[in-house]
Design a protein around this nucleic acid. Structure first.
Length: 266
DNA sequence: ATGGTTGTTTAACAA
């Protein structure tokens, strides 16, 4: 089973890229963030037509928006309104059991970016991010009590390791790589319960990036990336993990998202 | 230290 996470940054603008991604990687489940699409304008028909008959969405106009597209039957959809904001930053599913795998719970997060000023007392957006992480910790520690395999995916907007950013020194006071948010993320991704699938696969000494800013003239040449997109799996399905792919090619596609898709094969 | 770009929705906001 192949599961992809991708911050698509507008599903309507990038539907052709999504279809291209699907025909190239042939995933079974796709977790999208920043769909930026109200539910009544979601491109259901095109996706159902190519086999994603089971779709869970939580959209809103202009901002945020998450969706899970699945070829596997969805047994139930999970909702949670983090920070009582009525925004669209989380959706989860429990899949039906398939021949080889499942059921699985898949959590799809779009964690707040947090603005620019790394001080929660003067920056409400950073405060929101930190409170979101606190609530995420409680929510997942409750969910993980269920004795079935679980996966956390999404744009977590935090690059926790030194080699998840192009310069640990230059970014240590830049939101996404500050100590306070990294510490919070690390308490959620407790290694006794969760396996950080990318870091498990790739040596700590190697750089991993899944996002490159639009603001660099040549993203590939300057290569100032960050690992903001994550896939974690519970220890009880860790032995199922076969492969990880960071599909960097898409960053050179026409009208690219600033994030690239990440895929796990289990 | 500053400014660089993209997307949605209609000049401003978010990333």
């Amino acid at each position: 089973m192949k599961i992809v996470t991708w911050n698509i940054n507008s599903i309507r603008l990038r539907l052709p890229s999504l279809l291209n991604l699907i025909s190239t990687l042939n995933p079974d489940i796709i977790c999208l963030q920043e769909t930026k699409c109200p539910d009544d304008k979601f491109p259901y028909d095109e996706l159902i037509k190519i086999g994603f008959q089971h779709i869970a969405i939580k959209g809103q106009p202009s901002y945020n928006g998450v969706a899970i597209l699945s070829k596997v039957k969805i047994k139930s959809i999970l909702h949670h309104d983090f920070c009582n904001k009525k925004d669209s930053r989380y959706i989860g599913i429990e899949t039906a059991k398939t021949k080889n795998i499942g059921p699985l719970i898949i959590h799809n997060f779009y964690v707040p970016a947090g603005g620019d000023e790394p001080n929660p007392e003067i920056n409400e957006k950073f405060q929101h991010k930190l409170l979101f992480l606190d609530e995420m910790k409680d929510y997942l520690s409750e969910s993980i009590k269920k004795p079935i395999g679980q996966i956390v995916t999404g744009d977590l907007n935090i690059a926790p390791h030194e080699n998840d950013v192009w310069s640990h020194k230059a970014l240590k006071n830049i939101i996404s790589h500050t100590e306070i948010e990294i510490n919070k993320l690390n308490t959620i991704c407790n290694p006794e319960k969760w396996c950080d699938a990318l870091r498990h696969e790739i040596l700590d000494s190697e750089k991993i990036y899944t996002w490159w800013s639009y603001r660099n003239k040549d993203w590939e040449k300057s290569n100032r990336g960050r690992r903001l997109d994550h896939i974690w799996i519970t220890k009880n399905i860790e032995e199922l993990k076969k492969d990880i792919l960071i599909y960097k090619n898409t960053r050179n596609w026409d009208r690219p998202s600033d994030h690239v898709p990440v895929m796990i094969t289990i």
